[in-house]
Every structure is written in C-alpha cells, then in structure tokens.
Design a protein around this nucleic acid. Structure first.
Length: 493
RNA sequence: CCAUGGAUGACAGAGCGGUCUAAUGUCAUUGAUUGCAAAUCAAUUGUUCGUCGGUUCGAAUCCGACUCCAUGGUCCA
C-alpha cells in the first residue's frame, strides 16, 4: 500500500489509481529560456524517484512532463522566451532548442528516466484555444480587447473552490473586488489571462478567434494533461513555488472547461537552499549545476559527481527544504561511496550457510524496511538508513568480521536482488563511472591485476618503499587500493 | 502586511504524543585489522529537539505568543 502526502487535501493518504495497475502522472517541466539550474534538478530527481517507485510497484505509468516554450511571463510582462531571444539575437525556437537540449543532458547525467511524453506548449496551441472556447462557453471567461480572462468571481459564484490548493480564502478575494481597482482589461484583479493579445513587438504569436496572440502560461498544463491523461487522472506534481497561481489556476481551468479538476492527488517538492539561504544570482548566493560538478565555484571546495549530488538530494525528504553546502555534499559523497561499494561487493558475495541461517532474517528485515519506507510517501532518507544497515552487514561478511556461513545461499541471493532493485531501479543510483569506462574496463582490470601482483611481491619482500610508491602514485591517478584479508582490490574514483 | 510550510546534535537530515537519554550519513576519539596507511568492522563522545508559556500521567512530537527562514501573494518603490 502506497501512501503519499497529497497537498490538495493536506493529508497523507492512501494512493488508489483510477485504474488499478495504471498511473497517469503529470509534472510541470522547465521553462526553457535559460540553463536548467540545480534547484530544478532537485525537483526532477524527486519526481524521478516517485516515477521509479510507481514502476517498481508494477504499475504501468504514463509520465508526462512538459516543456514550456511560450507564455511564461516575467514580472515586467515580457515573455521569458522572447526576452531570451531578444537578448541573444536569436529566434525564440533557437533559444528553446538550446536549453531543451541542455536540460535533457542534465536529466541524463543525473540518471533521471525520460518521461513517457514530453509535450511542448507551442505544439498544443490548438488544444489551448479549444479550452479557452470551452471556458467562455461555460460563462467563466470573457473577452476584453482581444485578450481572454478567466472570470474568478463568476467561478466562485458557481461554488467552485478556488484557492483550496494554496489556502487562499474566497473572502479575501471578494474583499479585494470591492476596491474596484481592476487594472487594464481585467474586470477583477484576481482574474488571469488565458489568451493574450500580442503587442506589436511580441514575436511569438498565433491566430485565434479573439486576436493574434498567445496562450496564458497556466493554460498549457491544463490542455496537455487533459490531452494525454484525460479529464481526470492520478497525480500532478511540481515545485511548491508553482502552487499559486499556476496550479490553482490549472485546477480552475480544468474544472471550468469540463467539470473535472484534473488530478486527484497533488504532490509538491520543496526548495533547494544554498548555505541556508535561497539561491539568487543577484547576491552571489548561487551555483550552477556545471560549477557544482566541476568545482569551479567559491561555494564548493571541489567538484561532486552527479550521482553523489543525486544521493545528497535523496538524503532528505522531497517535501522538506534541503540546505546545500560544501560540508553537506562532502558528507553525502562519502556515504554514497560506502553504500555503492557495499552494493558492488554484494554482487560477488555468496552465502555459504543453509536455509534459515541467522543473518538471513536480519538482512531481509532491513531490506523490507527500506521498501516500506519508500511506500510511505517516498521516504528516501529512511530507506537509505535501512540500506546502510544492509551495507554494514555486507561489509562485515566480506571482510570476515562475520561469517558467510551465517547467511544462506538462497537467502542472500534473494537479498541481493532486492538490494539491487532498490538501489538501481528505485533510487536510480549507479556506480559513478567516468562514463566511458566500460569499453576499457577489461584492460584496466588486467593492468591493475598486474600492478597489484607486483606490489604484493614487494610487500612480501618487505620492500615498503616500493609498495608505498605504487599505492601513492595510483592514488594520485584517483585509483584507490584497498588491502583486505583476501588480497587487494582497487576502485576508480 | 496576508497565506502556507519550516526551525532537531559539529554539518546534513529522519522522527511528528509514550518503544526518543532522537534513525541514518559525515565529522571526532578508541579498539580490531594492517608493515604503515586507506578501506572495513566495532565501541564511544558530541544535543535534549529556535525562545517563552500552556495542555497532558507523559511532548522533539499538540496549543498559543514571539524570533528567524522559505515559498507565493500584496503594498510601497
């Protein structure tokens, strides 16, 4: 039984898909007007783990994550895409393409599975126009000077719960209406645009029954989630900064156009902080993903591998803010390495005991707890805690502190399968390789075997100078030797 | 100013009425192992859970006030 924290009801509830075994999930994707920043990465890593967990439970999941390439306006009213294009003297689509490609690269290096469908807002203008028509027909939107606005007061009069997601009060909204301070073409300050008439300088524009213009930002998610997941679907997710107005408006648009509010469960991920504060380019409290990986930033003493960063993110619950710092990253990196080393050792370890050996129970208990924690609102930190118990056990046996005969062959084989599924499939963690290490690994292994043999000989001859030289020079190449009871092993860092 | 979350040990972060003298990772100390290291295992120290007050037989967990932080809104610019 899977439980999740539904931000619409504000409660942790049991998840029941509309159709057992099938899950439809929509997650708000990036606006591709600038490079993806590390905060975005956390959001998408969180939803990747959620997606993976749903798959792990045997569901067939349709995961839709959009690309916003139109309509998301800046504070000054300029379209983000247009501004990006103007500043760089490019076509808006060039800007979108550049950052879409960059975004995909980023998702790949963090080992995020690609979504099932990745629709673009500009590819769904027709669907959005249709939705505007439906909302007008329902009497919940009005045209004004070529633009179309969602009529929030009318929507409220129909008794729909505008504000239920974000906790905004209907009364507050009505109180504002008495001020009669409607600006521009809007009748009411809380009304929002679903179709905007394009100004003369606006580059991105489409024909519509009302004007040559472009869709409001909130509309795309309503139109595309409905198109691919239906009028009612299971899960909608996004960063919690999107709760209001974006998600609130999305629900209203869905409800107004077809009588269904879209998703039945809402999930919101929390923000990533840097050194206890929000990231902001203007005051320097900021780091790009590239800098984080390369280490070229004052905020970080060295570069961190994407997998270590992913692990760092998973050490906290997706619903909590996470404070990133050099110390925190370094701690996560160490833990990640220890866990992955144990996972690797598990692949060659065998239990030699008979059925019902004493450690079987222990290892399966920890593994089952890890699974249970994932089903409890995707509690990755607790799951990882349980996984570390498994790691200690594996290391104990591999290093001879505990006996392999305390583990049954079948019991351990089963445990290994569970462990690998949790680590690789659910958490999406992989051993950090240099990327192209696979082709050359056979040669490297052979070479290292030779070097280790030579060093073993000098150790046998008590030629410590030689053996230490080998060890130190390898260390300088980021190859670490580990002397164990049963000989020496190595790992590439 | 409003709404909604949050404040936990050296750092990060779980826990959210009794099993908490608080999981887990990192750090520190010690022991085992080692030629010495590293890695590994084991043990131990580090705070009593923002502040003050309340509810309760019992609070990190509930309530109130305050301080600070985050997200969104709003006002002013």
């Amino acid at each position: 039984m899977l439980k999740l924290q539904d931000t619409l009801s504000g409660k942790k509830v049991e998840f029941e898909p509309l159709k057992p075994g099938f899950v439809g999930m929509y997650v708000c994707g990036p606006t591709v007007y600038s490079p993806a920043h590390i905060g975005n990465c956390r959001t998408f890593v969180s939803f990747d783990v959620i997606y993976r967990t749903l798959l792990y439970l045997g569901n067939k999941v349709r995961y839709v994550r959009n690309i916003t390439d139109v309509g998301h306006l800046l504070d000054d009213g300029e379209d983000r895409m247009s501004k990006g294009a103007r500043l760089q003297q490019l076509e808006p689509m060039e800007v979108a393409q550049e950052h879409t490609v960059g975004f995909h690269d980023m998702m790949r290096i963090f080992n995020n599975l690609p979504p099932s469908i990745e629709p673009r807002a500009t590819g769904h203008i027709i669907e959005q126009i249709e939705m505007v028509e439906q909302i007008i027909e329902a009497g919940l939107a009005y045209e004004s000077n070529g633009s179309v606005y969602f009529d929030v007061p009318a929507y409220l009069e129909k008794g729909e719960g505008y504000g239920s997601l974000s906790g905004r009060k209907v009364d507050d909204l009505m109180a504002e209406s008495r001020d009669l301070k409607a600006q521009g073409d809007k009748r009411h300050p809380s009304d929002f645009a679903i179709w905007m008439k394009a100004g003369p300088d606006h580059i991105m524009r489409w024909n519509s029954p009302w004007s040559v213009g472009f869709p409001g930002w909130h509309l795309e998610c309503s139109a595309m989630s409905r198109k691919y997941l239906g009028e009612e679907f299971d899960i909608h997710g996004g960063g919690n900064d999107l709760k209001f107005p974006h998600h609130e408006n999305e629900i209203a648009q869905n409800q107004a156009s077809c009588g269904h509010g879209g998703a039945r469960y809402w999930l919101h991920t929390n923000m990533l902080l840097l050194n206890g504060k929000k990231m902001s380019k203007s005051d320097g409290n900021h780091i790009t993903t590239e800098q984080l990986i390369s280490g070229e930033s004052e905020h970080v003493s060295k570069g961190y591998s994407p997998m270590a960063i992913r692990f760092f993110m998973l050490m906290a619950h997706y619903g909590s803010p996470l404070d990133m710092s050099d110390d925190a990253l370094a701690a996560a990196e160490k833990g990640y390495q220890r866990l992955m080393e144990a996972v690797k050792r598990s692949e060659t370890l065998e239990g030699t005991g008979s059925e019902g050996a004493p450690l079987d129970l222990e290892i399966h208990k920890a593994l089952d707890e890890a699974r249970a924690h994932m089903l409890d609102d995707f509690n990755t930190p607790r799951a990882i805690a349980s996984l570390f118990e498994v790691a200690s056990l594996i290391n104990s046996i591999a290093d001879g502190h505990r006996k392999a005969s305390d583990l049954s062959a079948a019991g351990f084989a089963e445990a290994r399968t569970k462990l690998l599924a949790l680590v690789h499939d659910v958490l999406g963690l992989q051993a950090s390789t240099g990327g192209d290490a696979d082709d050359s690994s056979e040669r490297i292994n052979g070479l290292m075997e030779l070097v280790i043999d030579l060093r073993a000989q000098s150790r046998a001859d008590r030629n410590w100078a030689m053996s230490d030289q080998i060890r130190d020079q390898l260390a300088a190449l980021d190859i670490e030797l580990k002397d164990g009871k049963e000989g020496t092993t190595f790992s590439l860092k």
